[in-house]
Nucleic acid binder design. Structure first.
Lengths: 233, 233
DNA sequence: ATTACTAATCGCCGAGTAA
DNA sequence: TTTACTCGGCGATTAGTAA
């Protein structure tokens, strides 16, 4: 018989191209910020499919939480959800990487003291194992905290569109440890990783981890200015 | 019976999402600049479809002139054509417009004299009618020619990714008049349009058209510096 | 007019397999 | 091995129509 490897991965739900095509059409119609008034026939015409197919697409999108419809008697109002825009944004960045290369960002801030949480978390075997495996080094037990100005904070948020290195959450000793995403960085020229916890406690403080103590290696004290370069993948 | 408008436009060849998905996959594998060595099974696995389906996709792409395959006995080499990259680039800019807004460009150059061709072409009824209809004004019979430095010339080329306003070619008096694409512009602040003929005679000269004589209105002479702002759609 | 259901059709997918 | 063919099956699509 034919090789079983032929079969597509059943875990990944066959992401049909139609989905993205419909979402993009709606976004172009302004359905991201203002509800778009479009009949299923109009959607179908722009997509090159029948009214019935377009209607099924819209129903499916609503079912998946990507679209909110207000069904007035005559014309439905269509509004994309944040999840839909995330999907489109990911698509955008996939193309962007293709044509513009990997993203970069440089951010400046100043060293501050944390509450010792970094030391506690990075001592947990559940984290240590993942960091060692996915970052390629055993993390120094402690993070370097850097406070950013609001303007810089906005710049660091571009990493939300990047892929990053995933650290999964886990449970140990009867409590829950949250996940995080890491991004390769250079802090004052030294290789390290920016850690973005899924549930961040801080508003304006970001954390870096490295194999050694960044504070000691770079002879940093609270209040010292630092500059970090982030690079995608 | 159901409204015939339900049926999709048969003229537009049902652009299946698969097409773009495969092209993007190949581009990400570097098939735009270097032939990618990928079996149909590998392509299928990354796409979540069977080897057979992936192979059909590849054959279809080759048939459409989007892909060149070198079929060695063991592994095929896949290289995307320029047409394929154009398709992907258009896709990219569609997303880019969505998230970054319409594109802009500012270019600087100096006024030069043309050969009077602008006057001749813009007197042709075939052009006058189209300009009047699609630009919203009857064009002054004559273009303003602006010579650009090579660095500026590269900047003006971004408009190739923009949609622009299409002017179709036609035949009249036994000869052929080529098509062109127009882009809304402001030259020294004055509304006008940049014209890009499909077959341009010049390397470093671009042409502007407006309802009135730009040269007279703006009191321009050969050699005068001008600045043009271009805005997408 | 809409949206959206049902039924019949169509065409794509993957199995099996040839080259 | 690989590419790529045929074919059966089934999911997606459209026609027709209800609400």
């Amino acid at each position: 018989m034919a090789d079983r490897a032929s079969a597509p991965d059943p875990a990944r739900p066959r992401a049909r191209g139609e989905t993205i095509a419909v979402l993009r059409l709606l976004a172009q119609a302004g359905a991201d910020h203002t509800p778009a008034v479009l009949t299923s026939r109009e959607v179908g015409a722009r997509l090159g499919v029948s009214q019935q197919a377009a209607d099924r697409y819209l129903m499916a999108l609503e079912h998946r939480g990507l679209l909110v419809r207000s069904l007035a008697r005559r014309r439905q109002r269509l509004q994309l959800t944040a999840a839909a825009m995330d999907l489109l944004r990911a698509e955008y960045h996939s193309y962007r990487r293709l044509f513009e290369g990997p993203g970069r960002a440089t951010i400046a801030g100043e060293v501050v003291s944390g509450l010792g949480e970094g030391r506690y978390y990075l001592s947990q075997p559940g984290y240590v194992l993942q960091f060692t495996e996915r970052l390629g080094y055993g993390p120094f037990p402690g993070t370097l905290n850097v406070r950013l100005k609001p303007s810089e904070l906005r710049r660091v948020n571009v990493v939300r569109d990047w892929e990053g290195i995933r650290i999964d959450g886990f449970e140990a000793s009867g409590r829950t440890f949250g996940g995080a995403t890491c991004y390769a960085a250079r802090l004052n020229g030294r290789r390290c990783h920016l850690i973005r916890p899924d549930r961040s406690h801080y508003q304006d403080v970001i954390e870096f981890v490295a194999a050694e103590s960044l504070r000691r290696r770079l002879r940093l004290q609270d209040g010292d200015p630092v500059e970090a370069d982030l690079e995608e993948s």
